[in-house]
Amino acid sequence: MTKFTLNGKTVTYKGDANKTLLWFVREDEGLTGSKFGCGVAMCGACTMHLNGNPVRACSTPMSAVNGATVTTIEGISSKVANAVQSAWETLDVVQCGYCQSGQIMSAVALLKNNPSPSDADIDSAMNGNLCRCATYHRIRAAIHNAASQLAKEA
């Protein structure tokens, strides 16, 4: 049996240990904010935080999450998360929006570790998150915007 914390709530899972975290969260727990994009950790649409670090849930087996703390887009509520999400809204980053939960989860993790990232830092932290609408231009601006917002509040 796998037991872990999902957005602050204890959840358990019995079954195929190879099943991935993404499908457990989406179908068993009904949290659909994290998206399926590639199934092979190449697009980042499914990004969640596992013990605070961004992971690709589509390629994280349930056997790897026992005892862990998992946060999805539905469960983020930190100062950093708020700054990131309001920057996304202020700058109207989204287009189709499908990849944006993953983008936001990667951006939040980046800013938690690095409060004032350079463009190169953003490139390396965000390069695994594909956006076919190519909203990269605004994602970059929104991350800078959130960083300066957080710096003002600090």
């Binding site: 904010g33 539905e74 999400q85 996304w88 109207d92 989204v94 499908y98 944006q100 936001i104």
Partner: peptide
Amino acid sequence: PRIDSKEKSRGKAQY
């Protein structure tokens, strides 16, 4: 302001 920004930035938009 884009009318769909908020729901798409919060994982709430339904596809």
